[in-house]
Design a binder for these strands. Structure first.
Length: 570
DNA sequence: CTCTATTGCGCG
DNA sequence: AAAGCGCGCAATAGAG
């Protein structure tokens, strides 16, 4: 029998600001939401022990936010298997087309109004009325208290209908909550970071370390060269405005200083300038200051913001975790006796589109490892580059250039897939919302946008409105694909975590998930278990596809490699 | 001084 | 070779 264990802040300690000493209360509920025993009051640091004890019964732990409660439990050595994250669920239900309308959804809409379309962690909690008969209508500001948490949890459960679509939504809510556990566990584990290797590569690129605020030697040398070549003795190449003026004065006709545009130009200053930009970026984004701020005890520990991206992808906070440049990946290195397993899904988004649209032709092209070659062979005379550009253009809404020209061919070869993304684009252009496969909704256009649309009178206003509409169309077009891909990835990690937990319960050490990047995962595992973990990674990918879509003829291959350091992967 | 916008570049 | 989507972060420049 499924049990729920609701954790809340003890209502008598609402005003305590020291989170470390805050007291908590735990309430066990049965599947119908009935209390199984009186609430357990926890004082001081006793929560971890209580959680560890109750975890034996495998309840689903209900938190107002996993992000605020779970790190402390992990620090105390306690892991849990299942959770329900009220804040994350609230954010999804707020925009979910499959959710049942009712007082709860109305209350979130009202409370969320100023933050329309805000990411999960910015929505305010729903609040219980002092008068229980008027649940969620007249808020009482006691948001962390047990009665509020229990009431909102039960309201969230009843907002999910018992229908086919409701089951999908339920899966999404469970997967999102599992994601919150995984995110906290990854922060706890940390990415293994070889500080000496990082310092070595900084030294190689920038020269010996200098005081903060001083330009590193190799940058200073290049800056001197740039000043000479441009005849600008005081130039600060870090200022785009100064650099632009200096280049124009030297007779180089550019309108901005972006590296890829500069690369087109033939002039002696370009080579040292691009070299400067390259190492300047390294120094400012991942230099010594970064290392000192974000790496401790050989671990990089970013925070993951689950559902932080509107499409359901994760965002991160701290150290630019989702943008670790290829340049420094040699510093991501397994501990002695351990190895990294790095896995990524091959061409995930077009495969998701094949599954979403039930396009059997595209599914056929997706059979096997190289989907783009499959498309190329089916309709682009074997030209893989063209096939790829056309497919990306369809998913992103490219209009101009190569991609636009190839669209008719793609459309005639895969009418169902292209029709789906074009439908999504049309929805967006009209101001309507769309949803991912499991039912994460996109925000609809704001009222003001709709009004401005009908009011546009002059030609210029009309054009601006159409440009805006097309932009929204590209967003909704991409949303259904990116959002569903994020769901697949969440299920992939969830399935993998479950399998690893099974091993751990059997007394083995399967290692840990330590990093996640949209369609890529990294595990830090005992050397002797790497092959076993690779097998679980593959198995989980197939399980995730079936969990989402059932048995369909679309392959979701992943490549998984065993390496010492991250730069050795792909 | 703090706050915000702009520019540019890293990642999928 | 970039474009079409989604982000975070650092440095600079300007506003208050």
């Amino acid at each position: 029998m499924q049990q729920f264990a609701v954790v809340a802040t003890h209502s008598s300690s609402q005003s305590e600001s020291e989170a470390g000493s805050a007291t908590a209360v735990v309430q066990l509920l049965d599947a119908a939401g009935t209390a199984l025993r009186p609430p357990i009051h926890v004082y001081g640091n006793g929560l971890a022990a209580i959680v560890a004890e109750l975890e034996a019964g495998k309840p689903r732990w209900v938190f107002d936010s996993v992000h605020t409660w779970y790190p402390g439990l992990l620090a105390a050595g306690v892991r849990i298997e299942r959770a329900h994250d009220i804040s994350l669920v609230r954010a999804i239900l707020h925009l979910a087309p499959y959710a049942l309308p009712g007082p709860y959804l109305e209350s979130i809409t009202r409370l969320a109004d100023p933050a329309h379309g805000a990411p999960a962690h910015l929505l305010p909690p729903a609040r219980v009325s002092a008068d229980q008969g008027e649940l969620f209508s007249e808020p009482k500001d006691d948001t962390g208290a047990l009665e509020n948490v229990v009431a909102e949890f039960l309201a969230q459960r009843t907002a999910v209908p018992d229908t086919e679509r409701g089951k999908r939504l339920g899966l999404l809510l469970a997967a999102e909550s599992a994601g919150a556990l995984i995110g906290a566990e990854m922060t706890h584990a940390g990415v293994p970071w070889d500080v000496a290797e990082h310092q070595r590569l900084l030294n190689e690129a920038l020269g010996p370390r200098v005081a903060p605020g001083v330009r590193p030697p190799h940058m200073e040398e290049l800056a001197g060269e740039l000043r000479l070549l441009l005849g600008a003795p005081t130039l600060n190449p870090d200022s785009p405005a100064e650099l632009l003026k200096a280049m124009n004065r030297a007779g180089i006709a550019v309108s901005n200083t972006r590296a890829w545009e500069l690369a087109e130009i033939k002039h002696p200053v370009i080579e040292p300038l691009l070299a400067y930009k390259k190492i300047a970026r390294l120094a400012s984004a991942n230099g010594h200051a970064w290392l000192e701020r974000w790496v401790a005890e050989g671990r990089f520990r970013p925070e993951y913001i689950v559902g932080g991206v509107i499409t359901g992808r994760w965002a991160s906070h701290g150290g630019g975790a989702l943008q670790i440049p290829h340049q420094v990946r040699s510093a991501v290195r397994a501990d002695e006796g351990r190895l990294l397993v790095v896995a990524d899904a091959a061409q995930l988004e077009p495969r998701i589109l094949a599954a979403l649209s039930r396009d059997t032709e595209l599914a056929t092209a997706a059979r096997g490892k190289d989907l783009y070659q499959g498309i190329a062979d089916a309709g682009f005379g074997g030209d893989r580059a063209h096939a790829k550009v056309a497919m990306l253009g369809a998913m992103y809404g490219a209009t101009s250039g190569e991609s636009g020209r190839l669209m008719p061919k793609l459309k005639s070869t895969y009418p169902r897939a292209v029709a789906l993304v074009e439908w999504a684009a049309a929805q967006g252009e009209s101001g309507a919302a769309v949803a991912s496969f499991l039912g994460r909704g996109s925000p609809a256009a704001p009222e003001a946008w709709m009004r401005a649309r009908t009011r546009a009178s002059t030609d210029a206003e009309q054009r601006a409105v159409e440009t805006e509409a097309r932009s929204r169309g590209r967003f909704t077009r991409n949303f259904i694909v990116q959002g569903t891909a994020a769901e697949w990835a969440l299920c992939w990690m969830g399935e993998l975590r479950r399998r690893m937990n099974n091993l751990r319960e059997a007394g083995d050490d399967p290692g840990e998930l330590v990093f996640f990047l949209h369609d890529e995962i990294m595990l830090h595992v005992p050397a002797g278990r790497a092959d076993e973990v690779v097998a679980l990674v593959h198995e989980s990918a197939q399980a995730a596809a079936e969990l989402l879509f059932g048995k369909i003829p679309v392959d979701f291959p992943v490549s998984a490699v065993i390496v010492d350091s991250y730069d050795q992967a792909k």
